[in-house]
């Protein structure tokens, strides 16, 4: 169907179900990375469902906030979750075609991620605790470093395929041959690197570091607001990984809405997610953090590689 007119009812249902499923699976993803960390520390570690228990408990706790926390402080948890759900609805995770294209082609996804980051930082500053202020400034600077790489990589792929609609891109990359292999591979590597940082994983751990690191802007939240923010962060990790999978590893997706195809596609998707989170966990736990001055040195070459991909695109390789 052409991306402009309203999709049929069944597609909308799939999109909503897909987004809610992702929201439901987010604590599983963060719980899984906590288990990997525990195993790397050679200790028994919590169960995979620990994050569910944490969020369930936090939802029922009293939400205390600093006296002079502004309106943004209270609004941010909802903004975080909603933006991620919007991206989730548009992602062609299990179907070849994006189930709800209106809410998210490439450009809107990048901007939704930017809104997520902007509100997250704003909440930190608005809760005017020094602590959260640092986390926000950290988040924004990370944004400046990472976003150009992400945009460049995805735009390169969009130019290769000729459209910015996620569904078409993953369909094109899955079925017909890659007539510009080198560009896509380079863009894939750079996009993986950028999304690894976006996931907030060590060694580029940023504001929403999870264990006893100060959790940046999340410091001032408590009770149900904290639960929403944790959900938002977990959902962001899941959505970001699926954005990468949808574009660069699109194989094994259902072509039509039949139950059998959907189920097989979901299983393949879960296996892919498992592998990606396992690798991310291993990398995260065996590196010391990169120094501030070194941050430029490590992230900037990724930007150069992205430019290289653009050049290969122009040259047509």
């Amino acid at each position: 169907m052409s991306p402009l007119e309203m999709p049929t009812a069944s597609w909308i249902v799939l999109a909503v179900v897909q987004a809610l499923l992702m929201l439901f699976l987010a604590p599983l993803a963060t719980g899984f990375s906590r288990v990997i960390r525990a195993k790397m520390h050679s200790r028994q570690g919590p169960g995979v469902l620990q994050d569910y228990r944490d969020i369930a408990k936090l939802l029922r706790r009293q939400s205390v906030a600093p006296a002079n926390a502004g309106m943004i402080f209270w609004m941010t948890p909802w903004v975080l979750v909603v933006t991620m759900l919007l991206i989730g609805m548009a992602l062609p995770t299990v179907t070849q075609v994006s189930p709800f294209p209106i809410s998210g082609d490439l450009i809107t996804d990048i901007y939704l991620l930017a809104i997520f980051r902007f509100f997250f930082a704003l909440a930190g500053i608005d809760s005017n605790s020094m602590f959260a202020g640092i986390g926000s400034s950290r988040e924004l600077t990370l944004g400046i470093l990472v976003e150009p790489i992400l945009i460049l990589a995805i735009v390169v792929v969009a130019l290769v395929v000729g459209t910015t609609d996620l569904g078409y891109i993953s369909h094109a990359l899955a079925n017909n041959s890659w007539h510009r292999p080198l560009t896509i591979i380079l863009a894939g590597i750079v996009c993986a690197f950028a999304l690894f940082i976006e996931m907030g994983k060590l060694p580029f751990d940023s504001a929403e570091a999870e264990q006893e690191l100060q959790e940046g802007p999340v410091t001032e939240y408590s009770g149900s607001a904290l639960a929403m923010v944790k959900l938002g962060l977990g959902l962001k990790q899941l959505v970001v990984v699926q954005l990468f999978l949808a574009i660069f590893i699109p194989w094994g997706k259902a072509s039509s809405l039949t139950a059998g195809a959907l189920i097989s596609a979901t299983i393949i998707l879960l296996v892919k997610l498992f592998i990606v989170f396992l690798i991310a966990g291993l990398i995260e736990n065996s590196m010391a953090r990169v120094r501030f001055t070194k941050i430029h040195r490590t992230i900037f070459p990724a930007f150069l590689v992205a430019v290289l991909a653009l050049i290969f695109l122009i040259l047509g390789w």
């Binding site: 602590f131 202020g133 640092i134 924004l140 580029f204 100060q214």
Partner: peptide
């Protein structure tokens, strides 16, 4: 600035507080 924030800042070395 609470020490933990400085500690985290020194750990991941981004944007000084």
């Amino acid at each position: 600035v609470p020490y933990k924030a400085i500690e985290q800042y020194s750990i991941d070395r981004k944007h000084s507080p």
